[in-house]
Amino acid sequence: MKKIISLVIFALFINACDDGDLTQENISFDTVKIQKCNSNSLLYKIKENEALIFETSNITFPTETLSQTLDITGSNRVVYRFFNNLVASATICELIPPANPVVTDQWTATGGKIIINTTAVKTNNEADNSSKITGYNHNITFRNITFSKTNGTQVYETFIFGDYVISTTALPFNFTKVLKQCPTSKRLYDKNSSEALILDIDPSLIVNTATPLNTPRTGLISDTKNKLTYRLFSGLLTDDYFCNTTFPATPLVNEEWIAAAGVINASGIIEVTTTANGNAFKHTIVIKKAKLKKGNSDFLLGDNYLYGELLTTN
Rank of each mutant, 00 (worst) to 15 (best):
V155W: 07
Q35W: 11
L197A: 00
P97T: 01
A290R: 07
L171S: 05
S57C: 02
S234N: 15
N40V: 08
Q154C: 09
T224L: 10
K294R: 01
I258F: 13
E256H: 08
T238Q: 06
D71Y: 11
P98K: 01
P216S: 05
V263F: 02
I145C: 02
D19E: 09
A99M: 13
T150P: 13
E195W: 04
N15E: 15
N117Y: 05
N226Y: 08
D240S: 15
K132Q: 07
P98N: 02
L52N: 01
L300G: 04
L300M: 00
I9E: 06
Y307F: 11
D21R: 14
I34T: 05
G278Q: 06
T246P: 14
T176H: 00
H138W: 09
S222F: 13
K294H: 10
A249S: 14
V272M: 01
G262E: 07
D163W: 04
G295S: 04
N38Q: 11
G308K: 09
P172C: 07
S131M: 14
E256Y: 06
D303P: 07
A109G: 13
I5T: 12
F29G: 01
P203N: 01
N76H: 01
T150N: 15
A16P: 12
N265D: 15
T284C: 10
I46A: 06
A259V: 04
N137I: 09
P97Q: 13
Y307K: 09
C243R: 05
A16W: 13
Q35C: 00
L220N: 08
N192A: 06
I269H: 00
A276F: 02
G162Y: 09
V32H: 03
T158R: 10
V272H: 03
L7D: 07
K177E: 14
F175P: 05
S204D: 12
G235P: 03
F147M: 09
L179Y: 05
I72T: 03
I5Y: 10
N125P: 08
P101V: 03
T218L: 12
I46T: 00
T158P: 11
I114N: 00
T238R: 04
I116K: 05
P216L: 07
T211W: 04
P101T: 09
K132H: 13
K45P: 00
F173S: 01
Q106P: 10
Q154L: 11
A127W: 07
D240T: 10
H138Q: 12
S185M: 05
H283A: 08
E126W: 09
F83N: 09
N117P: 03
F13G: 12
F83M: 12
